[in-house]
């Protein structure tokens, strides 16, 4: 066995030295290379994860805000259209009222003036009647005053008035 080891060049002292060598290298690399670099790498990974998480949160917030904005806009639009509708309705009513009032006034005015005109006409007519009666009586008096009695005179005036009334 030891012959075989010797032929293969195996020497336990050298072997041990190599093991120690490797152990020292392992220790130094672990302390100066792996630990700090892995720490930096893991920290960076964590940071990136956090940043992604945060940006996700921001996106969600943005979507929420967008939705809220949309909602508010819809509400506002609805309200404004309602207000406009109401205002239009009110304006229509006012116009209608004004129109109605104006109609009422003008009708009343027309009726009054018509009444006035009729009264005037009646008055004029009465005057014409009286005048006619006076005129007819005077004419009868003057022409056939001596011949006619009071009864005839009255009848002639009445006939003349009848004629006037019929011409009305």
């Amino acid at each position: 066995m030891s012959e075989l080891f010797h032929n293969l060049g195996i020497d336990w002292k050298v072997l041990l030295a190599q093991i120690v060598n490797f152990a020292i290298l392992l220790f130094v690399l672990k302390k100066f290379a792996y630990k700090p670099i892995l720490k930096v790498l893991n920290d960076r990974r964590k940071k990136i994860e956090e940043a992604i998480e945060r940006s996700k949160g921001v996106d969600e917030k943005m979507a929420e805000i967008e939705a809220l904005k949309e909602k508010i806009l819809v509400e506002a639009r609805r309200e404004s259209s309602e207000i406009i509708k109401k205002a239009e309705e009110a304006a229509d009513k006012i116009q209608e009222d004004a129109l109605k009032e104006a109609y009422g006034k003008s009708e009343k005015f027309m009726a009054e003036s018509l009444k006035k005109v009729q009264a005037e006409r009646e008055k004029i007519f009465q005057e014409v009647k009286n005048e006619t009666a006076g005129l007819v009586y005077a004419a009868v008096e003057r022409t056939i005053g001596d011949l006619a009695d009071e009864k005839l005179k009255a009848k002639m005036v009445e006939d003349a008035l009848k004629f006037v009334i019929s011409k009305r």
Partner: peptide, 15 residues
């Protein structure tokens, strides 16, 4: 081993 250790030390000091 020495070169690797020196390399690691130089590297590890300014991570």
């Amino acid at each position: 081993v020495i070169s690797l250790m020196v390399g690691a030390y130089v590297l590890g000091r300014k991570i």
